[in-house]
Design a protein around this nucleic acid. Structure first.
Length: 762
DNA sequence: GAGTTTGAAACT
DNA sequence: CAGTTTCAAACTC
């Protein structure tokens, strides 16, 4: 409804927007073995959670549009494979599929069960298509509950099965939706491709599962076992991949990451941009992947629509990659948690971190995000790398590098990536943009990589003295390894120096937890291009605000301006003339702000101001509803259309690509304080502790998420997610927490929800 | 492409 | 925490 996407998906699925209600739709549903697309979202969400455990939140929040499909794919993989089978095979197969799916669901639930509802809501808002996602969530939740009770759920239960099936179907449906195809054929093809992806993902998951980590978060063994049974062959392949890929210290970790990353990289980013097809994915992984597919029997099927398939596949790959990354991450994270130093051990080299177990605990406690962040980094790294760099098809090496990057990102930077996970979204968006549009990363992207990724995508640095181990280095800052595109000198930001990189990152992080957080959180520039994006403005937030003096916040020197975000209270700029929103315009609690605010014209810009200790949102401009203000960035408040806002350069890239993701990221980081506190909650959420309640709780997550901007810009939950992911720490918590925290928001949101949440008028 | 400007990061 | 230095990006020519 709200978004054009939905309708498409619905159409693809065989319905049109709001088809569900139609008798025809019902009839079709009853007839067709394939469940309606609805589940997609839910399933998607669920899987996301599952896959990433921690990451899921970010992923969830990540831009819904692109991500959903990808994400859906991720979770789907196993299911999808099964699905394919199911499609072709008798019910027995189905049940089995259902079982597997249920398993996955369980995982998700296990990890994020509490959050599931929330995420679902988010997705909804994101997708804004219909209430379906909610239903799905509900269904999934139910199934989860059931499963949870038994550890595994009875497959026999039709409802459960249906739910699972829906999930699978949904995934396929999502892909379809994404690709905008119409027929089942496409779906099948996609499925086949997905299967491939799944193989990879499954493998990754499997690997993760096998990993010795003591993750509480981890899936129950049973699931793993089942999956193994299903994917035994895959497993072997995976191992081979690992062996090939594992260079770094953290074998399994790297493996997975590497494995995925490549696929993800090549397929998603480059693929889209440079015509690389997933198939082109480098090396070992790929080749192995193929066998896996064969095993699955689904791979064989060719993709009739190459373009579509490729796109889809690339997307799927992404999703897959992500998933793997998440999984890995989760695994690593878990390790870190339980094994205390495990994660660090992976990074292990870093003596600093090692300190004492207690320290580690403290770290985790203090910055839960750190653990999570890794995920974000992965995503970010992946996303970023491809974009900015247009990785040469160098095959294995590059892939390895990427993989290593991923690893590093995962291990090292908790903060960044997430944000970037956000980046995932962003990456997805970018991919889409590229694919759809020019497709290729323009050479210009070098500098503009920022724009694209803003934080997430790879940046071609030209560091000379920093050895690419300082925040000066964009690549390092983004959590990605330097690669060929870089013109850096004495670069140590390479996979071969993983330990150094990780240790350095940790140091920097220890110094400044937000160091790797995206500078600015963007809402969704990309959306402009993309479907929903239209609605969401390119809202963004400053991580900490700029300190411009001479640039008047009118040049890229200004982080805020560069990020397409208006200056906020947190800024310390002088003579701010930020086109996106002047800091002065913002009404701050602080006296200075008020003074300045008086001076300012109050262009109707709303800015959020957060007290160092508190999150305080002040909306001067009354244009937007408070809820929006909160969710959206000042820029949005400013009412400057994303497109309009940014001067040329960054708009383009960003808008096309990352913005969505970033925005979410950015949001998270708003303040360190916020970050930390939220983080705690986040950790809890992840763990399944009370905090999740907060997230859910304050109010229906839906509402919070949905809070869409009154302007019709929907504050895309994804954003939140994205933002969160990269920054994980603050991001997730921030958003979630912040939302409920604001009384006004709740009220506003609730008020707005009806309008914004469900249907956003196209 | 080289040089300058700028503001963030790093350092003290 | 504040001031200074270092750094690399952004910008200009």
């Amino acid at each position: 409804m709200d978004t054009p996407d939905r309708p498409r998906s619905a159409a693809a699925a065989g319905g049109g927007g709001g088809f569900e209600d139609s008798p025809v739709f019902n009839f079709i549903n009853s007839l067709s073995p394939i469940p309606p697309p609805k589940p997609l979202d839910s399933a998607h969400n669920v899987q996301l959670f599952k896959s990433s455990d921690l990451a899921p939140v970010s992923s969830i929040f990540a831009s819904p549009h692109v991500n959903p499909a990808k994400e859906s794919k991720l979770p789907i993989r196993e299911d999808s494979v099964q699905l394919s089978r199911e499609l072709h095979s008798p019910n027995s197969v189905r049940t089995r599929i259902g079982a597997t799916s249920s398993i996955r669901m369980i995982r998700c639930k296990n990890i994020v069960s509490e959050n599931c509802s929330i995420t679902c809501y988010l997705n909804e808002s994101n997708s804004s298509k219909s209430s379906e996602p909610i239903q799905l969530c509900g269904a999934s939740a139910e199934s989860d509950k059931n499963q949870n009770t038994d550890g595994k759920k009875d497959l026999t239960t039709e409802e459960d099965l249906t739910d699972l099936e829906f999930v699978l179907l949904d995934q396929s449906g999502l892909e379809k939706m994404d690709s905008s195809q119409s027929g089942n054929n496409v779906c099948e093809n996609q499925l086949s491709e997905q299967h491939k992806d799944e193989l990879g993902t499954c493998v990754g998951e499997y690997m993760i599962a096998h990993q010795p980590s003591n993750d509480t978060l981890r899936l129950a063994p049973p699931f793993e076992e089942e999956t193994q049974l299903v994917n035994e062959t895959l497993e072997t392949d995976l191992f081979s991949c690992k062996s090939l890929l594992t260079d770094g210290p953290s074998g399994s970790y790297i493996q997975n990451s590497a494995h995925d990353p490549h696929l993800y990289w090549a397929g998603a980013v480059e693929g889209s941009a440079t015509d690389y097809t997933p198939q082109m994915l480098p090396g070992a992984c790929q080749s192995q992947m193929v066998p896996n597919d064969q095993n699955c029997n689904k791979l064989n099927e060719p993709s009739d629509c190459l373009p579509m398939d490729q796109n889809v596949s690339s997307q799927n790959l992404r999703g897959m990659r992500r998933r793997c990354l998440f999984n890995e991450k989760a695994g690593s994270a878990n390790k870190g948690v339980k094994n205390t130093s495990v994660r660090h051990s992976a990074n292990s080299a870093t003596p600093k971190r090692k300190t004492s177990s207690s320290d580690n605990n403290l770290k985790t406690m203090r910055t839960p995000p750190c653990a999570l962040p890794g995920i974000g980094l992965h995503l970010n790294a992946l996303a970023t790398v491809p974009k900015g760099k247009t990785v040469p098809p160098n095959d294995t090496q590059s892939s390895l590098n990427q993989a290593s990057n991923v690893q590093s990102a995962v291990g090292s930077s908790p903060s960044i990536a997430d944000p970037h996970t956000v980046n995932d979204d962003s990456s997805q968006t970018t991919m889409v943009a590229y694919v759809d549009g020019s497709g290729q990363a323009s050479p210009k992207n070098k500098r503009h990589k920022f724009d694209n990724a803003d934080g997430t995508s790879c940046k071609r640095c030209s560091c000379k003295k920093s050895k690419c181990l300082k925040l000066y280095c964009e690549c390092f800052h983004a959590g990605v390894f330097c690669s060929e595109p870089c013109s850096c000198q004495g670069c140590l930001n390479k996979p071969s120096n993983m330990e150094t990189v990780l240790s350095t990152r940790e140091q920097i992080e220890s110094r400044n937890p937000l160091a790797f957080a995206p500078k600015v959180i963007r809402t969704e520039p990309g959306q402009e291009l993309a479907d929903d994006s239209n609605k969401t403005p390119a809202s963004a937030r400053h991580k900490r605000g700029c300190n411009c003096k001479k640039s008047s916040c009118l040049k890229k020197y200004c982080e805020c301006y560069q990020g397409g975000v208006g200056c906020s209270v947190s800024c310390r700029c002088e003579g701010c003339k930020n086109a996106f929103g002047r800091r002065e315009g913002v009404a701050l609690l602080s006296i200075e702000e008020t003074k300045r605010g008086c001076e300012e014209k109050n262009e109707g810009v709303k800015e959020e101001t957060i007290d160092n200790d508190k999150h305080i949102v002040i909306y001067q401009g009354s244009d937007l509803a408070p809820a929006e203000n909160v969710l959206t960035t000042p820029s949005v408040a400013d009412c400057r259309p994303l497109a309009a806002l940014p001067p040329s350069s960054f708009k383009r890239p960003r808008s096309s690509t990352k913005l969505t993701g970033y925005s979410s990221r950015l949001e998270a980081p708003l303040k360190s304080d916020m970050l930390l506190s939220p983080f705690e909650s986040y950790a809890e959420m992840v763990l399944g502790d009370g905090p999740s309640n907060t997230l859910k709780g304050g109010s229906s997550p839906q509402t919070s998420i949905k809070v869409v901007s009154p302007n019709k810009k929907r504050v895309s939950p994804p954003r939140i997610g994205t933002g969160l992911s990269p920054i994980c720490k603050s991001g997730r918590k921030l958003i979630l927490k912040s939302i409920p925290s604001f009384p006004s928001l709740c009220g506003d949101i609730s008020n707005e929800d009806p309008n914004t949440s469900s249907p956003v008028p196209p």
